[in-house]
Amino acid sequence: MSSKQPQLGSLAIQAPSLTPKTVHVSPSTCHDVSVFKELMSQYRKLDDTINLRLNRATAQYRDRERRGLAGKGDVEEQACAQVWRELIANWSRRRELVDYCVGVVDQAMEEKQRSIQDAGDDASAQRKARGALYAEEVKRNQIRNELFVENIVRKRAFDAFRSRCRYFEPPQTDAEARKWWESSV
């Protein structure tokens, strides 16, 4: 398990903020499944609003072009590149969060397993430890189920992105972007 706790900012949630809020994820975040799922839901808003984000990015680059501040490439290409960068950054953060929480819960399960062994012949202590272990297993399964949800959310967002950005492909030089691209195709 990674001892580094992920810090997630609001830049990935719906729209960038001038004062991003940093969320300090701790083991208590992982152990409270409702808090964990709410955090995941917040970070999935970017995927849920992919078309809106593409519309806004396109309008932003069109305005820049009108003011003579055009960047490299056409408006659609720039908008697609910006949204793609936001998507993969968000996907990476969510993956980091899930991996961190799986590690936290796995460590708690190991501790519960040791407490069963330490209980020895004390039936009451063993029952209590097994109940705690079962609760941790349920928690771990709920957190791991988020990986399946992640796959569905990413596939849906990727399909929406591809329908709007038909000719976009991430640059060959961006290894992380290529990795996400190839895993989504």
Rank of each mutant, 00 (worst) to 15 (best):
A135L: 04
K37M: 05
R94K: 10
K128D: 13
R95H: 13
A129H: 04
R127K: 14
P16I: 07
S17F: 03
Q14V: 15
F148P: 09
I50K: 01
N141M: 11
K72P: 08
F161D: 04
G103A: 05
V105Y: 02
S163F: 02
H31S: 15
S17P: 00
R64G: 05
F148Y: 15
D121P: 00
L54V: 03
A175L: 14
S92T: 14
S41E: 08
I143M: 08
E65T: 10
R93P: 00
C30S: 05
A135K: 08
R67C: 00
R66C: 06
I13F: 01
K179E: 14
S17T: 09
Q60E: 15
K37N: 09
A70S: 13
Q7L: 08
V98N: 05
R85F: 02
D47S: 13
N90S: 11
E111D: 12
R162W: 03
R95V: 09
D74S: 04
K112A: 15
R156D: 15
S163Y: 02
D118I: 08
A132P: 04
R95M: 10
Y43G: 05
A175F: 13
K128T: 13
T29W: 01
K72Q: 15
A177M: 07
R144F: 06
L54P: 01
M40N: 05
D47G: 07
L69E: 12
D174H: 06
Q142D: 11
W84M: 05
N90E: 07
E169D: 14
A15Q: 11
L133N: 11
P27K: 06
